[in-house]
Structure formats: C-alpha cells, structure tokens
Amino acid sequence: MNSFGFGELVIVLLIIIAVNIGVFLIIRELILWYWKINKSIQLQEETNSLLRQILNSQTTTQPNQLNAISDKTELKTDEKLSLNDLYMKKINQNNSKS
C-alpha cells in the first residue's frame, strides 16, 4: 500500500495551490483582454490627465480669475467630486462674476 507522509502531503498541497493561482491569473488576463478592460482603464487615465492639463491651462491663461474653488463653495472633506464637477463649479463661478 502506498501512503504519503505529512511532508509529501504538504508539498502536494502547495503545488496544487500554486497551479490554481497560476490558472487563475492566466484566466483573469484572458478575461481582461477579451473585454478590453485594461485598454479602457488606460484610456480613462489618459483622458483624466488631458482634462487636468486643459483645466490647468485655462486657469493659468486667465490670471484675473481664481485658480481654485473660492471660499464661497466650501467642500466637505468627505465629499468626492469628479474633475467635471470641479470644472463646472469653476465655470459657474466665472459666469456669476461676469
């Protein structure tokens, strides 16, 4: 009769876990590639970067306007705003001054 000792069982278990992790990572990459999730995230990060550049260029080319959100619009630290929300607040501030 062939019986495994405790050491052999631990080694077999570690090999099985390593193989499962490897298979999971391969399948995950295939799913991300198929649904183009990696490309989508990359494009969203690039879009955010370009939007920040546009926002910064508009605030630096117009020195008479505020470069930040004024004290009139106080933001709570828990409040999360998107870049679009910040831009719209800045536009509304500029329009209200005109």
Rank of each mutant, 00 (worst) to 15 (best):
N2D: 11
N2Y: 10
N2Q: 10
G5I: 12
G5K: 15
F6N: 13
F6R: 10
G7E: 15
E8H: 11
E8D: 14
E8I: 06
L9Q: 11
I11D: 14
I11H: 12
I11S: 13
V12D: 14
V12Y: 13
V12L: 15
L13H: 10
L13C: 12
L14F: 14
L14Q: 11
L14W: 11
I15N: 10
I15F: 14
I15K: 11
I15D: 05
I16L: 15
I16S: 13
V19Y: 14
V19H: 03
N20W: 05
I21Y: 14
I21R: 09
G22M: 11
G22I: 14
G22D: 15
G22Y: 15
F24G: 08
F24V: 06
F24C: 11
F24H: 10
F24S: 12
I27R: 06
I27F: 03
I27M: 11
R28Q: 07
R28G: 00
R28K: 13
R28E: 09
R28W: 08
E29I: 07
L30T: 00
I31W: 04
I31M: 05
I31K: 06
I31L: 13
I31R: 04
I31V: 15
L32I: 06
W33L: 07
W33Q: 10
Y34T: 14
Y34Q: 10
Y34P: 01
W35R: 14
W35S: 15
K36G: 04
I37F: 06
N38T: 09
K39P: 00
S40I: 12
S40L: 14
Q42A: 15
Q42S: 14
L43I: 06
Q44I: 07
Q44E: 13
Q44M: 09
E45W: 01
E46G: 03
E46L: 09
T47I: 11
T47H: 09
T47L: 14
N48I: 08
L50Y: 01
L50I: 08
L51T: 02
L51P: 01
R52E: 08
L55N: 08
L55I: 07
N56W: 08
S57P: 00
S57Y: 10
Q58H: 10
Q58C: 06
T59E: 08
T59P: 00
T59K: 13
T60A: 09
T60H: 12
T61P: 00
Q62E: 07
P63I: 00
P63C: 01
P63T: 04
N64M: 05
N64A: 05
Q65R: 15
L66Q: 03
L66H: 02
N67Q: 15
N67D: 15
N67W: 00
N67E: 14
S70Q: 01
S70A: 04
D71S: 10
K72H: 05
K72W: 02
K72A: 05
T73I: 15
T73R: 12
T73M: 09
E74R: 03
E74H: 03
L75W: 00
K76Q: 02
T77Q: 08
D78I: 02
D78K: 04
D78W: 02
D78N: 06
E79A: 02
E79G: 00
S82A: 04
S82F: 00
L83A: 05
L83N: 07
N84E: 14
N84P: 01
N84G: 05
D85P: 07
D85R: 01
Y87M: 09
Y87D: 06
K89R: 12
K89S: 04
K89G: 01
K90V: 00
I91W: 08
I91G: 03
I91H: 04
I91E: 04
